[in-house]
């Protein structure tokens, strides 16, 4: 505990009434899988658009005996992840971890961890753009009515036009899905790789958009159907023969970064490695120990 009273924040930073409001909206979001529930996104010491939606959900649900993991694009060590984790740790005192299997709450931006999540874990996703209909209907009021009436015809036309113009479904991230046969939901910028991992999962997924002031949820064992056509199916980013340069995994979502190398003609080369750094580190460690062990 700090010694000067003016430095003391409420447990979890936001005040109890703010928590209660977020909690009430989370319960409604779970009862309406995929439906966007408005909430009064509070001011935080982090600018809106930098994870404040996910942060407020975590602050509203976190308890003193939780173990917290925060990732940004699968990475535990990026600036955004480190800052959010430190804010939560200092205002709650909870244990933090980088190990997916040890965490009870995982706050994430743009990834679902590679390791399967269990029923005692909650994944909190930070959402930049909530409404999949934004592409076809920028007016929020009209889009809300379209959701209410399940009026998704224009979105299907958009998908069709994408096929006609580009020869394939050319949506990279934020792939639209239908949740539990009713609401169309934006999957946040999780890659297509992760979309089907929301389907009939064991863990609870909570989505928070601080800038757009919306909360939505996918409960466990809920059907997720990506928008697709019979002849143009939903596909992930998987490329046959892909491999992580660090751990050698062939079935993970990879990110690439440029490695400067003066010998190389282009001044360097691209290198691919697992986006989930905690999972990659574990595999590197296992590889090292099995190689050291006597054959």
């Amino acid at each position: 505990m700090s010694t000067t009273p003016e430095q003391l924040y409420n447990f979890g930073f936001i005040d109890e009434d703010s928590k209660r409001e977020v909690r009430r909206q989370i319960l409604k979001a779970i009862a309406l899988p995929g439906h966007q529930v408005p909430f009064a996104s509070r001011d935080l010491p982090i600018a809106r658009g930098w994870g404040t939606g996910g942060l407020q959900i975590t602050m509203a649900i976190i308890d003193a005996d939780d173990t917290l993991k925060v990732i940004d694009q699968g990475d535990d060590e990026s600036v955004n992840a480190v800052n959010l984790r430190r804010l939560l740790q200092r205002t709650t005192g909870v244990t933090t971890t980088v190990d997916t299997t040890a965490a009870s709450i995982i706050q994430t931006r743009h990834r679902i961890p590679e390791e399967p999540m269990r029923r005692d874990q909650i994944l909190v996703l930070q959402v930049p753009m909530v409404d999949p209909l934004r592409w076809v209907e920028p007016n929020l009021e009209r889009a809300t009515i379209m959701h209410g009436e399940s009026d998704y015809g224009r979105m299907w036309v958009y998908m069709y036009e994408s096929v006609v113009k580009a020869g394939d479904l050319r949506i990279a991230t934020q792939y639209p899905v239908i949740v539990a046969g009713r609401y169309m939901m934006d999957t946040t910028p999780i890659p297509r790789w992760d979309v089907m991992r929301l389907h009939n999962a064991e863990a609870l997924f909570l989505f928070g958009a601080g800038r757009e002031k919306r909360i939505y949820a996918v409960p466990p064992y809920t059907t997720i159907e990506p928008l697709q056509f019979e002849d143009f199916r939903f596909k992930t980013e998987f490329v046959a023969g892909q491999i992580c340069a660090r751990c050698g995994a062939q079935d993970t979502f990879l990110t690439s970064h440029f490695v400067v190398d003066s010998d190389h003609a282009d001044g360097g080369h691209w290198r691919s490695s697992c986006s989930d750094t905690s999972f990659c580190d574990k595999r590197v460690l296992v590889n090292a120990t099995t190689q050291e062990a006597p054959q």
């Binding site: 700090s2 003391l8 924040y9 109890e16 928590k19 989370i26 976190i62 308890d63 200092r90």
Partner: peptide, 21 residues
């Protein structure tokens, strides 16, 4: 750490919410 320990009622609210969740 710079937070006040939660009151009995706040602890009850959070624990209850996690059960309801």
């Amino acid at each position: 750490t710079t937070f006040q320990p939660p009151s009995l009622f706040e602890t009850f609210c959070t624990a209850t919410f996690r059960v309801l969740l």
